[in-house]
Design a protein around this nucleic acid. Sequence first.
DNA 1: GATGAATGAGACTTCATTCAT
DNA 2: TATGAATGAAGTCTCATTCAT
Lengths: 232, 232, 232, 232
Amino acid sequence: MIAPALTWQDRSSVRGEMQADEQTRPRTKRLPRSVRERQILDAAVDVFAAQGFHPASMDEISETAGISKPMIYAYLGSKEELFVACIRREADRLLEAIRGAVGEDLRADQQLWRGLRSFFEYTQEHRSSWAVLHRQALAQGEPFSGELAEWRRQAMELISVLLARATAASDQPMQPEQMQPFAAALVGAGESLVDWWIENPGHTADGMAMRLMNLVWMGFGDLVEGRDWKPE
Amino acid sequence: MIAPALTWQDRSSVRGEMQADEQTRPRTKRLPRSVRERQILDAAVDVFAAQGFHPASMDEISETAGISKPMIYAYLGSKEELFVACIRREADRLLEAIRGAVGEDLRADQQLWRGLRSFFEYTQEHRSSWAVLHRQALAQGEPFSGELAEWRRQAMELISVLLARATAASDQPMQPEQMQPFAAALVGAGESLVDWWIENPGHTADGMAMRLMNLVWMGFGDLVEGRDWKPE
Amino acid sequence: MIAPALTWQDRSSVRGEMQADEQTRPRTKRLPRSVRERQILDAAVDVFAAQGFHPASMDEISETAGISKPMIYAYLGSKEELFVACIRREADRLLEAIRGAVGEDLRADQQLWRGLRSFFEYTQEHRSSWAVLHRQALAQGEPFSGELAEWRRQAMELISVLLARATAASDQPMQPEQMQPFAAALVGAGESLVDWWIENPGHTADGMAMRLMNLVWMGFGDLVEGRDWKPE
Amino acid sequence: MIAPALTWQDRSSVRGEMQADEQTRPRTKRLPRSVRERQILDAAVDVFAAQGFHPASMDEISETAGISKPMIYAYLGSKEELFVACIRREADRLLEAIRGAVGEDLRADQQLWRGLRSFFEYTQEHRSSWAVLHRQALAQGEPFSGELAEWRRQAMELISVLLARATAASDQPMQPEQMQPFAAALVGAGESLVDWWIENPGHTADGMAMRLMNLVWMGFGDLVEGRDWKPE
DNA sequence: GATGAATGAGACTTCATTCAT
DNA sequence: TATGAATGAAGTCTCATTCAT
């Protein structure tokens, strides 16, 4: 490794003190594209979550990622494309977590319970992911809300199928399509509870999931009379 | 003897006229401050709802309102203050509508039903109000999300008290504080259902309210067994 | 005096609290033009002195004067014309004070002494006048600095003549034109000392005048050897 | 081995070129930061001197410098910060010139004489510097006048020490603090004489310095009797 | 590949000034 | 006469994006 010759960057600047911490970032380290893309996305999710889409500046994302702006444009395109990539990645991750938890072979209420629990666990551990997905994607209109709609569609399908299967043995079996609004309501209730949870910490993910499960499975009608739902 | 002000239902027509004859409108028609303020707020709500907070430009708001920018700043302050004023006005209106519908003398489930119905009716008729309140206020962070939080706090208090009263006669009476997460979940479910409704039109406000009522009052557990809730 | 009928101004505004102190200003009092003009000039001098020419707003001047903006424009013209009027009035006042103090019949050093003393007295009592004249007029370029130049011309003429007369009996009598640069230097020294005085209070006008008198009449050369000038 | 930077005397020619070929200048010539900063400061001083702080627009400064506005903001901050940077640079330069001329080993009157001469030489050659420092900084209030005050403080200290030393051998030795008002008066006299000089050209810097020297060293009292001060 | 340097475009905001009552 | 209401014009500042090294 040969020490690089003096480049123009070494010329001392009149305002040198503003560049004090530049040393901490290694210069010109060649990394494979996939690693770079993940660094960028990680930084972008954090910044978008903290600032919101518009206030977030490409400068801040570039500094947070430790990668120069031209690289970001080269790898992930414009700011809008970057934001879409963030939404997609986070949506996939959350869905994957829930799908994995729901499984395939349990009774419907058990599956729902596990899904809800994993949802609360995930959002607790990945605040930024959730903020980007829930708050930002919704507010920025097309084409971003379309990405969110796609996530909701998949989440609702998961739930609709699950609920429809639960009615299969009853005397009023229902189609997944009929369960859609209920699934939508459930998703919204979960989203709202996460927000409430953030402002009222001190509850476990299990506790949160239990509350929601009781509400949607037993209903207020049962709850007010003292009947509640318990995991087995 | 209070002269009745124009109610908010009048505003779309008022604005419609102002846009229609924009070409012929005299440059300087003197109107009292209160009228101008309402024109500005109406336009701002529409533009904020359609574009989002940051993409909305004061230029567009001023054109939509048919009022020059300096007047907007003179009457309602900065863009942020204008946005807050929008949020507050719409939150108050929605809460007022729900409070009026809930009444005071009915059984808890009847009150809840009427509240839900008025919620869906209101959001159907005032898309822009709802979009500003639900989507935009949430995403823009402080101080705007604080305004939304205040609205939620009031909505949740309304519901919490209602639900707590419903349990008064049971052998497990509950305090309003204990009902808070359920209220949060209900609010979120309602918000989410409105979004679903927008993308799946063709349902009445009554039908939407009924669905939500069945979910939260009966619960899936009852629903999957064919038991549902009906208004009397 | 009949209570005025309800005018449009009485219609309560949505933001009524911002107009709380409007009662304190009597409305529509007819005053002779000269009084109004003095009110305006007084306010303008204060505001220009405190803010500077450009940052001073016609709104603030109008509020300080208790007179509406259209009146100001009607009486004294544009902002620039108003500023010129301020400069002229204050310059005339200061010159008048000095001319009165100098008198006509005394010995040259006595005249100079009295002129200097009145200068320090005046600037001490009329800070705003001085600030407008000295600081603002100078910085705003033409046509305002021209007004200041006119004041300086007159002040320098007063001094030049005085100094020239003092040399009349010597063997090297001088013309007033030859004394101009000395007069300019004296004026500048006085202006600068006023600034120093403001930041170093605790001296009397007499003391300040004495210092300047000693400097310009005796010179450092005498001062450093212990010879100084005293009023008789 | 320090490569000599362009000295400030070079700047007028540098700027002259940049304005001359503005039409043909390539859009994006990469120059090191320090060069750009000097270009910006040079242009800013000229524009601030010609227009005054408020009337000067960042657009005009950017055009004069041949550099786009965002670069100005990136390198030197807001308009106010840019103005402060101008004041500081010019104040430092002027002080440096005077300090260099005064030297350390001469008799007090000789030192004063050389300092005054260099002051007039400098202000003659750098009109814009002087205008920014003297006229603009004073009028714009805090925080700008504070910068000027700092310059005055240093200039006065230089003079105070010099004068105090001159009295060391007399029977009434004085402290530098006692000489402050005299120093202030001297500075003001010099500033005012420069203004007079601008409107009455045709005198040499030596001649101007001699006039001031005679005034402050000999005093009118001596002058009117025909005694004057001469350099050796 | 990687980055400091550079900019066109557009946003918010304010102000001097005038109009209509 | 006197004033609240109204606006055209202009200024500061920021940002997404691209060049040239």
